[in-house]
Amino acid sequence: MQGGQSVGERSVSHGGAGLAEACDWLTARTAAAPGSIAVAIEVPHGPVVEALLERGFQVYAINPKQLDRFRDRFSVAGAKDDRRDAHVLAERLKLVKRQVKSAHRHLETLCDRLAAEESEPGQGAGQRDVTILRSMPGTGRIVIATLLAEAWQPLCRRDYHALRTLAGVAPVTLRSGKRCLVARRYACNRRLANALYHWARVASQRDVVSRRRYGELRRRGHSHGRALRTIGDRLLAVACTLLQRRTRFDPDYAAMSAAAA
């Protein structure tokens, strides 16, 4: 929908080819970049969500129970079909986007206030935590707010190992005799893990080093989620190093280091 009006309908087959076709059709039909296209869906994970996120679309997961109640505004009889649900999802998405914009304004104000409060007299050019985190690729209002709310103590200690464990990117090693298995860590702070996931996702689109590393991992056969966890792990290590050195992120640092070597 554009401007509250439907601009087209399309059915695609289930599978990788169908998902690619749907993504191509969305960009062609709207003549817009994927980053400016919002997609509403009833599930927060799965191959459809991963395919959309990998292409750069804005994905909003709408709770099915909320959608069911919202549907009553359009049909008191409780009628349900795919075409009607698509319209209901679009209307719900418009409301969610307004709420998200309002929340983003509040978060931006809070981050600005924190950055201003951290600038102490006589500190010179030393950069404070919020300013440093803001300089990193992929961070935004929600990521910074989540880091400050869910991992403030490890951030203050610059404790990289605690951060990666809390965020779920530190693997779990299962060892018994000659058997050794390295598995994903599921016992973690889910809010922090989600924030790091999206931090890594945006960084892999905007940061040259992260994008190159993501491509290497995918070529080695790693899944989208596995590659992003590796990117997120690196970002946490870089963030802790920058916080220890009291300096902002420099996107040209890797190139200058390679040239100096």
Rank of each mutant, 00 (worst) to 15 (best):
R213P: 05
D207E: 10
A203W: 08
L217Y: 14
L228N: 10
R191A: 04
D233P: 04
R220Y: 11
H198I: 00
R191D: 13
A237G: 09
A203K: 08
G215C: 02
W199P: 04
H198D: 08
R218P: 15
A195L: 06
R220W: 10
L196A: 03
R201P: 06
A195D: 11
L243A: 03
R206V: 07
R219F: 04
A239Y: 09
D233C: 01
R218N: 10
L192G: 00
L196S: 02
D233W: 05
L243F: 08
L242Y: 08
R226D: 13
D207M: 03
A200I: 08
G221F: 03
C240M: 06
C188R: 15
N194R: 15
R206Y: 02
N189M: 00
R191M: 03
L242H: 12
D233R: 12
N189V: 00
C188E: 12
A203F: 05
C188P: 09
I231E: 09
R234F: 00
L192Q: 09
Q205Y: 04
D207F: 00
R191V: 01
R212C: 00
R219W: 07
G215M: 03
Y214D: 12
L196Q: 03
S223R: 15
G221T: 09
T230N: 14
S223K: 15
R234Y: 02
L235K: 12
L243S: 09
T241N: 14
C188M: 05
T230G: 07
Y197H: 15
L228K: 10
I231W: 07
A203P: 11
C188D: 11
L196G: 02
H224G: 03
N194D: 12
W199N: 03
L228Y: 05
R212N: 15
Q244V: 10
R213T: 11
D233M: 02
R191W: 04
G225I: 05
H224A: 00
N189D: 13
W199I: 01
L236E: 07
D233N: 14
N194L: 05
G221Q: 08
R213E: 09
Y214Q: 11
R191T: 10
G232P: 04
A187P: 04
L217Q: 10
N189S: 02
L236F: 00
L242E: 14
A237K: 14
S223F: 12
R226L: 02
V202K: 10
S210V: 04
H222K: 15
V238A: 06
Q244H: 13
R219S: 04
R229A: 00
V209L: 07
R211N: 14
L236Q: 08
C240K: 05
H222I: 03
V208T: 12
A195Y: 06
Y186I: 05
G215H: 04
L236T: 06
A237W: 11
V238G: 07
A187M: 04
G232C: 01
E216Q: 11
Y186K: 12
H224I: 02
L192R: 09
R220L: 06
R191E: 12
R201N: 13
L243E: 13
H222S: 09
R234L: 01
T241I: 05
V202A: 00
R234C: 01
G221P: 03
G215T: 07
A193V: 01
L192I: 01
R212I: 01
A195V: 11
V238F: 01
R219E: 10
R201D: 14
